[in-house]
Amino acid sequence: MKIAVISDIHSNLEALLACIKKANKARVEQFICLGDVVGYGPEPAETLEVLRSLPGFVMVRGNHEDALFTPYYKSLRQHIRQSIDWTRDQLSAEQMAYLKQLPMQYELPGALMVHASAHKPERWSYVYNNEKAHKCIKASGKPITFIGHTHQPQIYFEMPNGKIECLTPRAGVAIPLYQRGRYVINVGSVGQPRDENNAAGFVVYNTAEREVTFHRIAYEYRVTAQKILERGLPNLFAERLQAGN
């Protein structure tokens, strides 16, 4: 079975639609979202509705969803709070209720889906080095952990001697996941990539072949950027889309 694992869409409808088209071409049967559907971008309600219509759609909570409902909101910087406040006004009561009940993590046979890290996920800490990845691997309880949050596609893997290594994946290359290996797979970001590449990113997980393929899809970010400016959201969110950082 092929599963599209997407994350950090951040209300970017154009990027999401480009990724869905690519996933459909790859004959994906299920979509799993690792959170942060909202925040930063101009179309939270539309984005959420498209997502919920996808086959087998499952979603876990991201920190931007958390910020809609919990005191975590207060820890955010001013311009992010501004986007959270604006987002809250755009969503219907039903959509808010949906986002409020989201679980912190979701389990598949042999894989765990979580937004930030399997290690104390409610802390929203960033897995950006081998040490953090090791903690995530140990806490996961599953050989494969899919995460997002940093907006940077990476694979951390445990060597047979216990050492953790990191690989920056190349788009389009099917990467085998060894039977006895343990992995943390950061799927990158659909709506706001931060690895100096402005193309939308997601992963296709082939459960039968035990392979993951990272995809990068160019989309018309200028349309999204224009919408961000038209809605009076901070300029920075529009600029980041072009720079991809």
């Binding site: 694979i155 893997f157 060597m159 047979p160 001697n161 050492k163 290594e165 690989l167 994946p169 190349r170 290359v173 990467i175 085998p176 060894y178 290996g181 992995y183």
Partner: peptide
């Protein structure tokens, strides 16, 4: 190359 090397 391009995939994790598990050889230790």
């Amino acid at each position: 190359s391009q995939i994790p090397d598990m050889y230790t």
